[in-house]
Amino acid sequence: MSTTTTTHNHLDDNCIFCKIINYAFMDIEPLSEGHSLVIPKYHAEFMHQVPDDYLADIMPLAKKIAAAGGFAQYNVLQNNGKLANQAVPHVHFHIIPKLDQETGLGVRWNPLKKSMDDIKVTYDDIIKKL
Rank of each mutant, 00 (worst) to 15 (best):
M1D: 10
S2R: 05
T3D: 07
T3I: 06
T4V: 14
T4A: 14
T4W: 09
T5Q: 10
T6E: 14
T6H: 14
T7A: 15
H8C: 08
H10K: 09
H10F: 14
L11T: 04
D13M: 09
N14M: 09
N14C: 08
C15D: 03
I20S: 03
I20E: 00
I21T: 12
I21M: 08
N22A: 15
A24V: 04
F25W: 10
M26S: 10
M26F: 02
M26N: 09
D27S: 14
D27M: 13
E29L: 06
E29R: 12
L31C: 08
E33M: 14
E33L: 15
H35R: 05
L37K: 00
V38Q: 04
I39S: 09
P40T: 02
P40W: 02
K41Q: 14
Y42K: 02
Y42R: 07
A44E: 04
A44W: 06
E45S: 12
E45N: 07
E45V: 13
M47F: 15
Q49Y: 11
D52W: 08
D52Q: 15
L55C: 09
A56H: 12
I58Y: 05
P60H: 04
P60C: 03
A62E: 04
A62F: 02
K63N: 15
K63S: 14
K64L: 08
I65W: 06
I65L: 06
A66V: 02
A68D: 09
A68N: 07
G69W: 04
A72F: 05
A72P: 01
Q73F: 00
Q73G: 00
Q73T: 03
Y74F: 15
N75E: 06
V76M: 12
V76N: 04
N80H: 07
N80W: 06
N80D: 06
N80T: 03
N80F: 04
G81C: 06
G81D: 10
L83S: 12
L83V: 12
N85A: 12
N85W: 06
N85P: 01
N85T: 10
Q86L: 11
Q86F: 10
V88G: 04
P89Q: 05
H90I: 05
V91L: 07
V91R: 01
H92E: 05
I95E: 01
I95N: 01
I96L: 05
P97C: 05
P97N: 00
P97E: 00
P97M: 02
L99P: 00
Q101G: 02
Q101C: 01
E102W: 11
T103Q: 11
G104P: 00
V107D: 00
V107G: 02
R108T: 15
N110A: 10
P111V: 01
P111G: 04
P111S: 04
L112S: 13
K113R: 03
K113V: 06
S115N: 01
D117G: 11
D117W: 04
D117Q: 13
D118G: 14
I119G: 03
V121I: 15
T122G: 12
D124F: 06
D125L: 11
D125F: 03
I126S: 15
I126V: 15
L130Q: 06
L130P: 01
